[in-house]
Simulated assay, not measured.
Amino acid sequence: MDKIKILVVDDESRMRKLVKDFLVREGYIVLEAGDGMEAMDLFYEEKDIALVILDVMMPKMDGWQVCREIREHSRVPVIMLTARSDERDELQGFELGVDEYISKPFSPKILVARVGAILRRTLGADPGELLKAGGIEIDKTAHLVKLDGKPIELSFKEFELLTYFVENQGIALSREKILNNVWNYDYFGDARTIDTHVKKLRSKLEEKGDYIKTIWGMGYKFEVES
Rank of each mutant, 00 (worst) to 15 (best):
E153L: 04
P151K: 09
V166M: 11
L161P: 00
N181M: 11
Q169F: 06
K157Y: 11
S174G: 12
S174C: 11
A142T: 02
E176F: 08
D148N: 14
K177P: 02
G170W: 12
V145S: 04
L154I: 03
E167S: 14
E160S: 12
F165H: 03
R175W: 06
L161K: 08
R175F: 07
V182S: 11
G170Q: 06
K150I: 11
N181T: 10
L144H: 13
K146G: 00
L147H: 07
P151R: 10
L162S: 01
F165I: 11
S174R: 08
A172Q: 15
R175C: 02
T163E: 09
L147E: 00
L179S: 15
N168A: 09
N181V: 09
K146T: 15
G170F: 13
D148V: 00
E167D: 13
E160C: 11
L173I: 04
K177Y: 06
E158D: 11
E160T: 05
V182M: 09
L162C: 03
I171T: 12
S155Q: 07
Q169H: 07
A172I: 13
S155K: 03
E158Q: 08
N180W: 08
Q169W: 14
E167Y: 07
E167K: 13
T163R: 14
E153T: 13
F156V: 15
L147K: 09
K177R: 14
F159M: 04
V182G: 06
E153K: 14
H143I: 15
K177G: 01
N168Y: 13
K177A: 08
V182T: 06
L154F: 06
F159D: 03
K177Q: 11
V145E: 00
L161V: 00
E167W: 10
F165Q: 00
A172D: 10
V182P: 00
I152N: 05
N168M: 02
D148L: 14
I178Q: 08
E160H: 12
T163S: 12
I171G: 01
I171N: 03
L154G: 03
K146M: 07
V166F: 00
S155N: 03
L144T: 09
Q169V: 05
I178V: 12
I178F: 12
I178A: 08
V166T: 05
L173V: 05
V182H: 07
I152G: 03
N181C: 08
D148P: 05
H143Q: 14
E160L: 13
K146S: 09
K150A: 07
L173S: 04
H143A: 11
V145D: 01
Q169I: 10
R175A: 09
N168K: 07
A142N: 14
K177L: 15
N181F: 05
L179Q: 11
I171V: 14
R175L: 10
E153F: 10
V182D: 08
K146D: 00
L144D: 06
L162T: 01
G149R: 15
A172G: 10
R175N: 13
E176K: 13
P151D: 04
E176Q: 14
L162Y: 03
G149F: 15
N168R: 13
E176D: 15
L179Y: 07
P151M: 06
N181Y: 07
K157E: 02
